[in-house]
Amino acid sequence: MPLFQNAVFSTTVADLRNLPNDSRCEIAFAGRSNAGKSSAINTLANHCRLAFVSKTPGRTQHLNYFQLAEGKYFVDLPGYGFAKAPEEIRGQWEGLLAPYLRCREALRGLVLIMDSRHPLTELDLQMIGWFAPTGKPIHVLLTKADKLTRQQQALTVREVQEALSSMTGNCTLQLFSSLQKSGVREAEAVLGEWLDLPTRQDRPPPSGLASEKAARPKKRNAIGWSARHAGGGARGR
Rank of each mutant, 00 (worst) to 15 (best):
M1Y: 12
P2K: 10
L3I: 07
F4M: 00
Q5C: 05
V8W: 03
T12I: 08
A14I: 11
R17P: 08
L19I: 15
L19A: 09
C25A: 02
A28G: 08
F29P: 12
G31I: 11
S33Y: 08
N34L: 04
G36N: 11
G36S: 09
K37L: 13
S38R: 08
S38D: 03
S39I: 04
I41Q: 05
N46K: 06
H47R: 05
H47E: 06
C48R: 02
R49Y: 01
R49C: 06
A51H: 03
F52L: 15
F52C: 11
F52P: 06
V53I: 07
V53W: 04
S54G: 05
R59W: 13
R59I: 03
Q61Y: 07
Q61V: 12
H62E: 09
Y65H: 11
L68Q: 00
L68I: 04
A69R: 00
G71L: 09
K72D: 00
Y73P: 05
V75P: 13
L77V: 06
Y80F: 04
Y80Q: 08
A85Y: 10
A85C: 10
E88K: 11
I89Y: 06
I89E: 07
R90Y: 08
Q92V: 07
E94Q: 02
E94M: 02
L96F: 01
Y100E: 02
L101S: 10
R102Q: 06
R104Q: 12
R104M: 06
A106Y: 09
L110Y: 10
M114A: 14
M114N: 08
D115E: 06
L120T: 09
L120W: 11
L123W: 01
L123R: 02
D124N: 11
L125K: 10
Q126C: 09
M127W: 11
G129E: 14
W130S: 14
P133S: 11
P133N: 06
P133E: 13
P137D: 15
P137E: 06
H139T: 09
H139R: 14
K144D: 05
Q152N: 07
Q153T: 09
Q153V: 05
A154P: 08
L155I: 00
L155W: 01
T156I: 01
V157A: 01
R158K: 01
V160I: 02
Q161T: 00
A163K: 10
L164M: 15
S165W: 03
S166M: 14
N170F: 13
C171I: 03
T172L: 12
T172C: 10
Q174A: 13
F176I: 10
L179N: 10
Q180R: 12
K181M: 09
G183L: 14
V184Q: 00
V184I: 08
R185D: 12
E188K: 14
V190R: 06
G192K: 08
G192L: 14
W194Q: 13
L195P: 05
D196M: 15
D196F: 15
D196E: 15
D196G: 09
P198Q: 12
P198H: 09
T199V: 14
R200I: 12
D202T: 10
P205M: 07
G208R: 02
L209I: 01
L209D: 00
S211I: 05
S211A: 04
K213A: 07
A214D: 05
R216A: 08
R216Y: 11
R216T: 12
P217M: 06
K218A: 04
K218M: 11
R220T: 04
N221D: 03
A222W: 09
I223C: 10
G224L: 02
S226L: 07
A227C: 15
H229W: 14
G231S: 15
G232K: 13
